[in-house]
Structure formats: structure tokens, C-alpha cells
Design a protein around this nucleic acid. Structure first.
Lengths: 249, 249
DNA sequence: CGAGCCGTTGAGGGGATTCAAGCTCAGTGG
DNA sequence: CCACTGAGCTTGAATCCCCTCAACGGCTCG
């Protein structure tokens, strides 16, 4: 996809798709209704448009890194982003996922460094909004302030949900929980993004071998149907059955 | 401690220590510097004082319950509070702790129901602040708005930290992570609150037996020194040694 | 006193990790 | 063309950690 090295966990090379001519894309944005600026008046939106950069990221590129100075927030237009942080033991742990319409990196608005590393899982399109732009709007738009608080609550909800659904119980239960979440980011044809086995490992705190075994079992049971390496389809009825099976566990 | 039944996980009986005479306690509050209202001007603080109720809760009483309408936020003055939510399998999982100075139940400000059940672990003193009071101040104090956002970020940070430190690795590693956190809520004599074994279980996703075995081992190793049923003391050097030992694991 | 809760410890079994080998597939270069 | 390589995925076998089931002691309380 790019001529540079694939750079797993490297610095982001912020390839600006449309550097200084954001054009009319805001009004035609696929996530326009869910995005942060949906609460703005047209004239307010117009005022910040030229400060917003439209960026693209390839798999395993990071949008930003933990502990770095945070000058901007991002709205995700397409793709899946994972949030990683190192454990005290040196391994990496994924603590959350984000998808189209989500606002990430809000630490920036508090003059705090980024709390996690945000890494693209799939190809990702995102809008980069400098802190200054939000600050200015914030002074005049009470609705934006309210919306920002709502975003924080959403992130908190996602994190706590990750804890209850993806960090408890057997490996199979956690795997089903993950697939259930990935289903929300499915494309129109119902294909879900399938993480690498080691990614699954850092999401669910298991080894690559265990992740592989769970996937294999689900395939044998007809729950999961792999389509190439990075995509798959879930069978709803078999999925429910699998859930019940390990619910009785 | 109270004449009513101990009511494990029951409704909160909101015992108001000083019903309608908040008195001068705000200025003498032990958490005055860390609490939300620290950012307010004296006259602003004065305006809301009479709307704030000073409440007490006994162990296992809940301050509020998940999915309930949320009319107020709470500032914790003393004690430790845990946030629980049910898993899809029917068990309970603790997703976060809060202590003196923390602001909880901020969902209320967004007209959302409470996201978790907040349960007192120890004896807890808290100030109940109705949503309406915050709303009014919010319109005039930009600093309060900023502070609220900071609180949300703190909660998110705590939740993600819980995920990386208390939900990964072996039972011993998680136990040491928990003790490390509890240390932050230690009293002046260095005594920490010691949870029941089943509480530890729902915090670290392990059985009571496993929790008990870890505790016993740490006692034998001189890391932990129990003082009665609900208190203990950590030996810093032995604690570090234990961390290294299971770091090499 | 007996009942019940809480904590502890032991024995056995099961699920996950570890270690290891083999597979496919893409890219490389002779 | 094909051997070679390395990354990712899968599977097997042995080990180990944790869960399950069980029993028991201390303690409070009716």
C-alpha cells in the first residue's frame, strides 16, 4: 500500500490525503451524523474546516504515542483503531477499540500527554483537529462542551465494558466477546476485520497458540468462516449456540 | 455499626449525617484541596453549600445502582468505593476503585443513568451534589467545566490502568497489583484496607480459594502482615522482591 | 449451642501455557 | 525456475497454574 517499510509500531508517517484543501468533505462525510461536529452550527463548522487535516494510516501505523505531547484530537472516519499501553511486565495490552464516528485523543484538550498509543488495525481515515480549534469553539458553543463530556463518558463505558466482557472467564468466552465487538465494525457485506493471532493475544491476555486454538475450534463448529487472512464472517445462530455452550461452563 | 441489617448489595439507606445544616464543613473538609469545588470562588461555593448533603455509608451499602436514574454526583470525603457491573455470565466484576477526593457518578450530568453500581468498601463519607447545582455553576464557571473534563479523564485513566495492571498475568501478579493500589488509600499509620477474599475474587477475576492462597503465601514471605480481618500492612522491601520474583516468571 | 459466614488448606482435574515441530505463503536472489 | 528465508498460523505433547470440590477451624450471632 505504501512504498515505505510497513513499520510495525513505528512512528506515524502522517500522510495527508488532502493537505490544505479540506474541500467539501465535511458535509459528505460518512460519519457526519455521529461525529463531534454534528452538534455545531454550519457557520461554526465552516470556521474550523480549514484547520482540520484529513489523514490516512496503514495497518500497524500509530496515530499517536503514549506520553507524547498532545496537540490534537482525531475523529475516525473509517477503519478500526486499538489503544495499547505497556504493562509493568513489559508486554503490551490492548485496552479499547475505536471505530467510525469515535473521537479519540481527548487528553489533548486538558493539556495532558496522550494516555495510550493509538494504532491503526485496518486502513484508517481520520480527521485531525488541533486543540486550538476546539478551544475556540468551546468558548462559544455550550452544545460542544456537552458533547465532549458525552464522548468522555463513552470512552469510559467502552473501557469498563472491555473489562467485564473481554477480561473475564475462559479463553473461549473472551474470544466470543471479542468477535461480538468486532461485529459492530462489520462492513456492509457482513465481513468483520480479523486480527492477527498475536493481536488477539494482547487484547484478551492469552498466548498466540491459545488464540489460534479457539479460532480453529470456532471454525470447526461453523461459528466463524475465514475469508482470507484478515477477514471473516460470523454465523449468528451458531454464535448464539457457542455463547450458550460456554455460558453453561 | 448500624442498627439496621448489614444489607449486602441492598439499597442504600441514605443516612444523612447533617441533613440540612451543612455547616462550615466545606472549608474544613479533609479533601478540600483535591475536591471538585476547589476550583470555585468562595462566593460560588457559598451558593451551592446548602444543596450539598453530607452522607455516610457502611461497608457493602451502595451509593447508587447501575441503570438507575442519576440525579446527583458524589464527592468522596473518606473511605474506599468500588464500581461493580454484572458480566453477561451473571457474575459481578469490579472495574474500578475510588477514594477520598474523587468525583463519582458524573453520568448524572449528561442525563444518563448510572453506569455502574457504586458500593462502599469501608465506612464511607460522601457529599451528594445535585445535578442542578453543577449545571448552574457550569454556566458561569469555565474552570469548573474544565475540571469536570479532567475528572472524566481521571476515571478513564483509572479504568485502563485497572485493565493493564489488575487483569493481566498470573494470580500473584494481579494480587500484587491490587495491593499496590490499596496502598494509595492507606491511613496515616500505613494500614491498608484488606478486602474480603470474595471481593478480591471479583476484582481480579479469580476464585476465593486462589485469593486466599495468594494472601497466605504473601504472609509467609513477609510481604503482608494482617492486622485483624479488614486491615493489613505491606513491607515495602519484601513487596519489591515479590514483584521481581514474579516478574521473572 | 448450632447455624452461618469467612478464611484456610488439601486433593484432583481441566484449561492455558510452554516448548516444539510443521505448514502455507510472499518475497528474495541465485 | 527453485531453493531459501522469515512471518504468521496451526497442531501436538508435556507441564503448570488455577478451578472445583471438599473438609475444617475460628468467629459472630440468634
Amino acid at each position: 500500500m505504501n512504498d515505505a517499510t510497513p513499520l510495525r509500531h513505528g512512528q506515524a508517517d502522517l500522510r495527508c490525503l488532502e493537505p490544505h484543501a479540506p474541500g467539501p468533505e465535511c458535509t459528505t462525510c460518512p460519519v457526519r451524523q455521529q461525529a463531534l461536529f454534528a452538534v455545531l452550527q454550519p457557520e461554526e463548522r465552516e470556521r474550523v474546516r480549514e484547520q482540520v487535516a484529513h489523514l490516512g494510516f496503514g495497518p500497524d501505523e500509530s496515530l499517536y504515542s503514549r506520553a507524547q505531547p498532545a496537540p490534537a484530537v482525531f475523529t475516525i472516519r473509517a477503519g478500526v483503531v486499538r489503544f495499547e499501553r505497556p504493562t509493568t511486565h513489559g508486554t503490551r495490552r490492548v485496552v479499547r477499540l475505536a471505530g467510525p464516528g469515535d473521537l479519540i485523543g481527548t487528553e489533548a484538550l486538558l493539556d495532558l500527554p496522550y494516555a495510550d498509543e493509538a494504532v491503526a488495525c485496518t486502513a484508517v481515515e481520520a480527521c485531525r483537529i488541533p486543540k486550538s480549534a476546539i478551544d475556540e469553539l468551546n468558548r462559544h458553543s455550550e452544545r460542544l462542551t456537552q458533547e465532549l463530556m458525552r464522548r468522555w463518558q463513552l470512552a469510559l463505558e467502552a473501557s469498563e465494558c472491555w473489562l467485564t466482557e473481554l477480561s473475564t472467564g475462559t479463553a473461549m468466552r473472551r474470544m466470543l466477546g471479542l468477535l461480538d465487538r468486532l461485529q459492530r465494525y462489520a462492513d456492509p457485506e457482513g465481513l468483520i476485520w480479523m486480527p492477527r493471532r498475536d493481536e488477539i493475544g494482547s487484547m484478551l491476555d492469552m498466548t498466540v497458540e491459545t488464540a489460534s486454538r479457539q479460532i480453529s475450534q470456532l471454525r470447526r463448529e461453523g461459528v466463524l468462516e475465514l475469508h482470507g487472512a484478515r477477514q471473516a464472517r460470523l454465523c449468528a445462530s451458531a454464535f448464539e449456540a457457542a455463547l450458550r455452550r460456554c455460558g453453561a461452563n
